[in-house]
Design a protein around this nucleic acid. Sequence first.
DNA 1: CATAAGCGATACTCGTCAGTATCGGAACCC
DNA 2: GGGTTCCGATACTGACGAGTATCGCTTATG
Lengths: 203, 203
Amino acid sequence: MTVEQTAARPVGRRRDPERDAAIVQATLDVLAETGYEGMTVDMVASRAKAGKATLYRRWPSKAHLVVGAIASLTETNVTLSDVPDSGSFTADLATMKKASGHSNIGLKMQILAGLTPSLASDPELAAIIREQLIAPRTTLMRGLLLRAVERGEIAPDRDLDALALIVPSMMFYRCAVLGQPVTLESHQSLIDEILLPAVGLRP
Amino acid sequence: MTVEQTAARPVGRRRDPERDAAIVQATLDVLAETGYEGMTVDMVASRAKAGKATLYRRWPSKAHLVVGAIASLTETNVTLSDVPDSGSFTADLATMKKASGHSNIGLKMQILAGLTPSLASDPELAAIIREQLIAPRTTLMRGLLLRAVERGEIAPDRDLDALALIVPSMMFYRCAVLGQPVTLESHQSLIDEILLPAVGLRP
DNA sequence: CATAAGCGATACTCGTCAGTATCGGAACCC
DNA sequence: GGGTTCCGATACTGACGAGTATCGCTTATG
């Protein structure tokens, strides 16, 4: 009203960025345990020791909160340029595994499993999940496969798109349908027992 | 009270068994479209052109209705004895495909996808689904793989349990995560492009 | 110190849904 | 025809959850 206000001039107590982190982490935890439909905003608030007002001051709805929390998961995505050509497909795979957070692969699978029916009913959520969470991993694997084809390790007529889906598909099925834990060991086992034979390499 | 009533003597109008079929089919349809959490009993009733009282006269709760509808899906399960040894792994696979209903593979995948988060939160439902719907298929595939090992088509040191999961895992991922249709063609493509190379056979 | 905003906590509104009750009518048995 | 049960339809009850409002307190600016 009066005159210019060049920069946003915050008045009063400022938002505590630590609350964001606590709320996002609580959202991911509850999401993994109960799924999207089973998760309530009150669960997240009490898990984060926050008031509901604090949540709704930062995210306008439950859906936005979940999308935001998932977006934070993708910040550590690995791309093809993070995996220097190490001379062989199996060595590239090992490098990729090291470069990936290493950490929360089981958590991600459980979150994805809890989101599944919502993917079919909510196209916006589905688009975000597929672009942010799914596509980067698949693209990376296809890149490694393409390198292996160029090296001559893999026959050039193989369907790289299908091959790139083997490992994520089988980890997801193990978690979502069989209810078995997804660990780094089970991941490695899938690579050795299924992926490498499927592309025509022996470990 | 009075005296014996040796057999159940039905008095009054009898239940219409056709209503059972309509309600079960409506349940499966709604389940595939919306998932367990998104499905309401009113949706099923109106889809089946039935009153809610008719549903609750036959099933005591929404959970029992869903379990019953799924049980009806398993009546056409194929077992190893339905697939005579045809001399080669690929021929056995083709026989199995013919013997299976051929029909509603996409519907089953969508139903399973809509049930996913409930599998993690409801152990009873999970046990029924895994025993009735999942295990029979996996067991059949493992049986065919074992035959192939005995024939010498497949190396004896391969992990048959893991190999048996390739096709269902990748069909489920395609449906539940990627949101792409699961058809007989995509099923065959998985067999030719992934399963056969993984076991060391070329189509 | 006065004003302004964030904080956790709690109570409230409002729509939705599982399950129940009731209705008029139809099918079945004696 | 009388009694009983099924049928579809509709209204009702009670619980639960998303989103809003408010309270007393704290943290910042000036």
